Simulated assay, not measured.
Amino acid sequence: MERLTAIGLWLRRRAENIAALMLAVMFVAFIVQVAFRYLLNLPVGGASELTVIMWLWLVLWGASFVLKEREEIRFDFLLSNVGPKARRVMSFLACAALLFLYGYSLPAVWDFVTFMKIQETSYLDIRYDWVFSIYVIFAVATLLRYAWLLLATLRGRDVEGARSAGAEGDQ
């Protein structure tokens, strides 16, 4: 079990490293874009395109692999006003609904992303299937996360209560 925890921590650190690298690329591309546009009066579309692609990848990568469950932003005023049993039922229903929705949409998402290989970005000539492939990764990671939460709820864990307590303990 300790070995799995160590591997998980190592993987989490690498995911954070990749997110930091994407943020650095996005920042440099933004600075290049500003410098070329306002200092040299030469708009550079590739830098703008790279900034947008890095933002898309950074947000979905972070949501998939970096963000912890208790760090997600939610409106939990309803959950915080009910007991543990009601929270477990609500968590079960939310997990089941999200698993159904993401699972149902996954084939269509896959079809769309693979179809987009026919088109490339305007400046950098990156195929759109590569650009949008992060959403497939995000959807699969979200399915795995909510399957794990559903199993934890079925085992009697008050996932939302633990989440709220964890968030308060972090402050």
Rank of each mutant, 00 (worst) to 15 (best):
A141S: 12
F112T: 04
Q119N: 12
V113N: 00
K117Q: 14
M116F: 04
R145V: 12
I73V: 15
Y123K: 06
Y135Q: 04
P107C: 01
L144Q: 11
I118M: 09
A86W: 08
K117E: 14
K117N: 13
F138G: 00
I118P: 03
Y104L: 12
M90I: 12
K117L: 09
Y123Q: 12
L124S: 03
K85T: 15
E120C: 07
Y102A: 00
A86C: 11
L143H: 00
C95P: 02
F112C: 04
D76I: 08
R127N: 10
K85Q: 13
A97C: 11
F77T: 07
R88N: 07
S91M: 13
F100Q: 08
A97S: 07
V136G: 05
L101G: 10
K85S: 14
R145L: 09
E120M: 11
G103L: 09
A96R: 07
Q119C: 08
I126G: 01
A139N: 09
Y102D: 01
C95G: 01
D129R: 08
A94S: 13
G103T: 06
R88H: 13
C95L: 08
I73M: 13
D111I: 07
W130T: 01
R127T: 06
S91N: 14
Y123T: 07
Y104A: 13
V82G: 06
L98H: 00
L78A: 14
F100R: 09
L93G: 10
V136T: 05
R145Y: 02
V136C: 09
Y146E: 04
P107L: 00
A139G: 02
S91I: 02
T121L: 06
F112S: 10
Y135R: 01
F77Q: 12
R127M: 03
R127Y: 07
L79Y: 10
M90L: 15
K85E: 15
E120D: 12
T142K: 09
V136Q: 05
L106K: 00
F138K: 00
Y123E: 14
A86K: 11
A97N: 04
S105H: 06
L98E: 02
V82C: 04
M90Y: 11
I73L: 15
R87D: 02
W110V: 05
I118N: 15
L143N: 00
V82P: 01
I134V: 11
I126E: 06
F100L: 14
L99T: 03
R145S: 05
I134S: 00
F132K: 01
L78Y: 15
S133M: 05
Y128W: 08
V89W: 15
L106E: 00
L98P: 01
F115V: 02
D76Y: 05
M116P: 01
Y123W: 09
Y104F: 15
F92I: 08
F100S: 03
F138N: 01
W110Q: 02
R127V: 04
R88E: 09
L106R: 00
A141L: 06
